[in-house]
Design a protein around this nucleic acid. Structure first.
Lengths: 198, 198
DNA sequence: TTCAAAACATACTGACTGGTATGTTTTGAG
DNA sequence: CTCAAAACATACCAGTCAGTATGTTTTGAA
């Protein structure tokens, strides 16, 4: 981040402090008054940086959530040697290790798909972009595995990718009511599932 | 339904007409004014039947959503001969055939877990009950299959059930942004996955 | 038929919402 | 140092929300 002015700092500070609020309470249930109370920024400052609430919501996704999710979900799958291993480890890390997530609140990106994608096409578009990129990373990872003969050549990579992403999105949801044990059970069965790919 | 009085009819009418609103817009975003406008029932009538908005929300789940979901998800798995086949057909039917669902809006039960379970323990409890019952039906179905040797004896049924439920919850979410093709891709891979159970 | 309780109808309230109008202060190029 | 634009601060507004107060009508047992 080169040359962050003080104003840029205010902007990114609002986004970084608003994200946990949206994560815990949902986007619509998080009021601008909540955000300015938490950030200690006045309403004038808020509306100087964002035209309206939705523009701020989109900025949270694009400027904070997207890079963070990309690092967790996409980057571990690039330059792959062993797809099964890398997919499993990516999943285990994001589910069990990351300190931002709270099982009770699931995954902020998944939550926003649920809440906002049917209501606002701008939200739908940026969230679609994130998940398509993740899906493509899984597909690319599997296709690399085909070359190295670590996954079978007739595998439908797209299909497997959709299945894997569904599992993630779903366990983030179910975990909210079933608790941590559901994460470990999911991961164990994911490992079983991945063995059929070769 | 024996002896439904006129008042009982009003009550169930409110619930049945409120459910699609909650399904499309979310629970918190659906105002009581929206509901009474759609149901053509006055606020006085609404609050005669429900102490507050949350009691109505819980009644929607218990009195409308729960029986409907049970019929779709649980009952097809009872008295099972061939778990793989019955699990797959249950999933295909609920995803592809049911006329209530709209891919854009996902599944109302999944949506409510996402939105309400972290915020309200009463909602969390009734939704947990529904999904635990579904999970138990999958487990029971698989255990029956063990007896009939259609699934392998050392299978961890609980683990498989969590994995299957995750898939459903997840594809209901992903389908919102990826569209109908993701449903068919998911189902094809579910079929592949189920083959490893025997 | 009576009449009390059940079932509804209408008008309203106070708290909160996203957003704006109108200021004041800070910043940095010239 | 100057001063205009950038960056903020405060007060406020019109709309919406869940919920209530206070009615009127309908129902069904006696």
């Amino acid at each position: 981040m080169p040359q962050m002015s003080k104003a840029d700092n205010t902007r990114i500070d609002i986004l970084k402090k608003a994200l946990p609020l949206v994560y815990k309470n949902g986007y619509q249930a998080t009021s601008i008054d909540d955000i300015i109370a938490t950030t200690q920024v006045t309403k004038g400052a808020f509306y100087y940086h964002f035209k309206n609430k939705d523009k701020m919501g989109l900025a949270i996704i694009n400027d904070v959530m997207y890079p963070a999710m990309r690092a967790l979900l996409v980057e571990p799958l690039l330059d792959s040697q062993n797809p099964q291993k890398e997919i499993y480890q990516m999943m285990e890390k994001v589910l069990m290790d990351d300190t931002f997530f709270n099982i009770k609140y699931g995954c902020p990106a998944v939550n926003l798909i649920e809440e906002m994608s049917p209501l606002n096409s701008d939200f739908a578009n940026v969230l679609t972009k994130l998940f398509i990129e993740w899906k493509n990373a899984v597909v690319g990872c599997l296709n690399e595995g085909k070359k190295g003969n670590t996954v079978k050549a007739d595998l439908n990579s797209e299909q497997v990718a959709v299945f894997v992403l569904s599992g993630y999105s779903g366990i983030r949801n179910l975990g909210k009511i079933l608790g941590k044990s559901s994460y470990t059970e999911y991961l164990k069965e994911l490992k079983n599932y991945l063995t059929i790919l070769n």
